[in-house]
Amino acid sequence: MRSSNRNIILYIVLALLTGLGLGLAYSWLLSPVTYVDANPAMLRTDFKDQYRIVVAASYASSHDLARARARLQLLGDVDPVGQLSALAQNMVAGNASLEQVQPIAQLATDLQQGFSSSPITDTPFVVVVNTPTEIDTPSAETFATETQTILEEDTPIPTLAFDQTPLAPVVTSTFAPRPTFTAIPASGVLFSLVGQDTVCDPGLQPGLLQFIIMDSRRRQVAGIEIIVSWTEKEDRFFTGFKPELGDGYADFVMQPDVIYSVRVVEGGAIVPNILAPTCTDPNGVIYTGGLLLTFQQP
């Protein structure tokens, strides 16, 4: 009798486990929950990058920083600026063109500083003036509530579109100079080398060539192209891809005993004979140091 009861319990347990297995197999394998209404945060990494590129391209046209920020928030990034910077760096490493990388670097910079640094739109057809409506919920429905005014192309009113940040003024249809505005240099004004310092820090990468690019008011400038050349090779990169180190910061790793020349593309002259210095630590050990080049507009 006792054995019979034990068998029954065993059968019940086995039956329960069998049923559980069948249920799980059906719900996980045969008919799993399917997502047809996914949000951008669920996208695969490469599609997220493509999404960021389109956000940046859209921002380059509209200069609507609040909307660009809201759209990036849809991706669920903890550090949207860092993600954009990493994407820009990857694109540069993948030999993407300036036209492809520039909008991403510009959006990263503007998100970092909190306002649009290129508020005057150059779109050829319509000019959009956004009313300062705060966008909290980044959905298409919310976007649709924005009040917008369309001006024709030949309306000669300089048009500004700002993010609602403490630094930015309210939207206006007249051009108002702002003391905190902007780090974009005047085109054609040369950057000249104002400092060349040897950096002996064993904690830094050996041969690290650091750049700081500043405008005439000593504010760091993002998006400036730098060319480093050596023995029939060259590397091109831009300031602003590491905003945590400054908008005007860029760096490059030199090889020991290789002579480089450096040029800031924005009308700059060539700085020749750049060589990684040798440094000595307190124990007398020799190691390859770095250089800090500072360029500034006069």
């Binding site: 039956a15 329960l16 486990l17 069998t18 049923g19 559980l20 297995g21 069948l22 249920g23 799980l24 197999a25 059906y26 719900s27 996980w28 799993p32 929950v33 997502y35 996914a38 669920m42 996208l43 695969r44 990494t45 599609f47 999404y51």
Partner: peptide, 22 residues
Amino acid sequence: GIGIGLTYGWVINPVVYTDVTP
């Protein structure tokens, strides 16, 4: 058992999609 399995697989711990396509 099937009921418990379905509840667990569909409600408590459903398949989570993290790499969906656009």
